[in-house]
Measured scan of single mutants.
Amino acid sequence: KNAAKIVNEALNQGITLFVSDNKLKYKTNRDSIPSELLEEWKQHKQELIDFLTQLES
């Protein structure tokens, strides 16, 4: 999976991924984040940080 797909899947579940101080963060109104999503974010962390940083610049 690529970073764009992961970010879109998160958005579809009401979760916004973003970068703050070079760290991957998220915002959501959900009570909890599915563990498989958290695991996927960890596996692709640097790719996600790079992707989101490019989007914001």
Results as ranks from 00 to 15, higher is better:
K45L: 15
A4Y: 08
K23Y: 06
A10Y: 02
K42R: 15
S32D: 10
K45F: 14
D50P: 03
Y26A: 06
L17F: 04
N2H: 12
A3V: 13
P34A: 05
L55G: 10
L48S: 00
Q13A: 12
N29C: 14
K5S: 13
T28E: 02
P34C: 04
L48D: 00
K27M: 09
K1E: 08
Y26P: 01
I6Y: 03
K45W: 15
N29P: 05
D31S: 12
L24I: 07
E40A: 08
E47L: 11
N12F: 09
A10K: 01
D31I: 12
F18W: 07
D21I: 03
S20I: 13
K25W: 15
A3F: 04
W41I: 11
E36V: 09
Q43L: 13
N22S: 09
K5I: 12
E56P: 12
I49R: 02
E36L: 08
A3E: 03
N2T: 15
N22I: 02
N2E: 10
N12G: 11
K25M: 15
I6P: 00
S35M: 14
T16S: 06
K23H: 08
E39Y: 07
N12L: 15
Q54C: 11
G14T: 02
E39S: 07
K25Y: 15
K45Q: 15
L55C: 10
H44C: 06
V7R: 03
K1M: 09
K45A: 15
N2P: 13
E36R: 08
F51W: 09
Q46L: 08
Y26L: 04
E47F: 05
K5N: 09
N8H: 12
R30W: 06
E9H: 07
L11I: 07
L38T: 05
S20R: 07
N12S: 15
H44I: 05
S32H: 13
F18Q: 05
N22C: 14
F51L: 05
A4W: 13
T28G: 06
I15H: 03
K42N: 14
K27W: 08
L55Y: 12
K23S: 10
T28S: 09
I15A: 03
L38P: 03
F51S: 01
F18E: 05
K42E: 15
K23E: 15
L11C: 12
T53C: 08
S35K: 13
Q46F: 08
L17C: 03
D50G: 06
I15R: 00
L24Y: 01
T16H: 13
Q46C: 08
N22T: 06
K1D: 08
D50K: 08
I33T: 03
V19W: 04
T16C: 15
K5M: 15
E47K: 05
A3H: 02
V19K: 02
E56V: 13
I33K: 02
R30N: 10
F51A: 02
L52K: 00
T16A: 06
L37C: 05
K42Q: 14
F18N: 03
S57P: 13
Q13M: 15
N8Q: 15
T53V: 12
T53L: 13
N2I: 15
L48W: 00
K1A: 10
E47W: 04
S35D: 13
A3G: 04
I49M: 07
V19D: 01
Y26I: 06
S57L: 13
D21T: 03
G14F: 04
I33Q: 02
D31L: 11
L37T: 05
A3M: 11
L55A: 11
E40I: 13
E9I: 06
E9A: 08
E36A: 10
S32R: 09
Q54P: 06
T53N: 11
E40N: 07
N8L: 15
G14I: 02
R30V: 06
L52M: 03
L24F: 03
L52Y: 02
T16G: 04
E56R: 12
K45S: 14
F51N: 01
L17V: 02
L24D: 01
K1W: 08
K42S: 14
W41E: 00
H44F: 11
Q43C: 06
I15Q: 00
A4T: 05
V7A: 04
E47S: 09
N22G: 15
N22A: 08
S32F: 11
I33H: 02
E36G: 09
N2A: 09
E9F: 06
N12E: 15
I49H: 03
K1R: 12
Q43N: 11
I6A: 02
G14A: 04
L37E: 02
Q43V: 12
I6Q: 02
A3W: 05
E39M: 08
A10L: 03
K25F: 15
L38N: 04
N12W: 08
L37A: 04
L17G: 01
N29V: 08
K1Q: 10
N12R: 14
F18L: 07
E56K: 13
D50T: 10
E36C: 06
K23P: 00
D21L: 04
D31T: 12
S35V: 14
L11W: 10
A10R: 00
A4N: 06
K25I: 08
L38Y: 07
L55R: 13
Q13L: 15
T28A: 06
T53P: 02
Q13I: 09
V7Q: 02
N8F: 13
N8D: 12
D50S: 08
E56I: 12
Y26V: 05
F18R: 03
S20K: 12
Q54Y: 10
L11G: 05
K27P: 01
A10P: 00
A3L: 07
N12C: 14
I33D: 02
N22F: 06
L55H: 11
N22H: 10
S32N: 12
Q43F: 08
Q13S: 07
D21R: 05
T53M: 14
K5P: 02
F51I: 03
Q13R: 09
L38R: 06
L17Q: 01
T53I: 12
E9P: 00
T16P: 02
Q54L: 11
L55Q: 13
S20Y: 12
F18T: 06
L55T: 10
V19M: 05
K45P: 03
I6M: 11
E9R: 10
A4I: 07
N29E: 13
T28C: 06
